[in-house]
Amino acid sequence: MKTLIVLLMSAVLAFSAHADEKSIQHLKIADVTSVEDARKIFIEKTSEIRSKRDLGADELQEIHVITYTLEKSVEFFTLNLIGDKKKLAEDIAVVVENIHINSERNRKEETRKYLNQYFVMADTFIKGF
């Protein structure tokens, strides 16, 4: 009986220790099917993320949700571009995934680091539209 109580308490403590990294249920987002839509989504979602300054828990979760749609836009570009533009889109995809994961887990500093990388890459990418 003591072993069961110890196990239960350990589980509660382990859960509490990771409460700030709780996951959000994954969203289903429709695929992007045109260059125009991909471009529009990319610009709009980049602007939305750029408006987040505090990166508190609420803003991190908002960024997390935004990345679902942004990922679909970037995915379209990785599948439909060629050459240097395709490579940049692939690099952006990796950074967006890092933003997604870190914002989901409420990791403010890591998210900020990847956002800074993303904005530099996104600005270059947008200039190529």
Rank of each mutant, 00 (worst) to 15 (best):
1 M>G: 06
4 L>A: 13
5 I>E: 14
6 V>Y: 10
6 V>W: 09
7 L>H: 13
8 L>G: 10
8 L>K: 11
9 M>V: 15
10 S>D: 11
11 A>W: 15
13 L>M: 14
14 A>W: 07
17 A>Q: 08
18 H>L: 07
19 A>C: 00
19 A>V: 01
20 D>S: 00
23 S>K: 15
23 S>T: 08
24 I>Y: 12
25 Q>V: 00
25 Q>I: 00
26 H>Q: 12
28 K>M: 01
28 K>R: 01
29 I>L: 03
29 I>E: 02
31 D>H: 12
32 V>E: 03
32 V>I: 05
34 S>P: 03
34 S>F: 04
35 V>G: 15
36 E>W: 05
38 A>H: 04
41 I>W: 05
42 F>A: 06
42 F>I: 10
42 F>V: 10
43 I>V: 14
44 E>M: 13
50 R>I: 05
51 S>M: 09
51 S>V: 03
52 K>A: 12
52 K>N: 11
52 K>H: 13
53 R>V: 08
54 D>K: 13
56 G>A: 09
57 A>H: 09
58 D>N: 10
59 E>Y: 05
60 L>G: 02
61 Q>R: 14
63 I>K: 08
65 V>W: 14
65 V>C: 07
65 V>Q: 13
66 I>K: 03
66 I>V: 02
67 T>G: 10
68 Y>W: 03
69 T>K: 05
69 T>I: 05
69 T>S: 06
70 L>Y: 08
71 E>T: 03
72 K>N: 01
73 S>P: 01
76 F>H: 10
77 F>S: 01
79 L>V: 10
79 L>P: 03
80 N>K: 06
80 N>S: 06
81 L>C: 00
84 D>P: 15
85 K>R: 10
88 L>D: 03
91 D>L: 07
91 D>K: 13
92 I>H: 05
93 A>G: 14
96 V>I: 03
96 V>Y: 02
98 N>F: 07
102 N>D: 09
102 N>M: 07
106 N>W: 11
107 R>F: 12
108 K>G: 06
109 E>G: 13
111 T>H: 09
112 R>H: 04
114 Y>N: 05
115 L>H: 01
116 N>T: 10
117 Q>D: 02
118 Y>M: 02
118 Y>C: 02
119 F>S: 11
120 V>L: 14
121 M>H: 03
122 A>D: 08
124 T>V: 13
124 T>N: 15
125 F>N: 02
125 F>W: 02
126 I>H: 03
126 I>N: 04
128 G>Y: 09
129 F>M: 13
129 F>E: 07
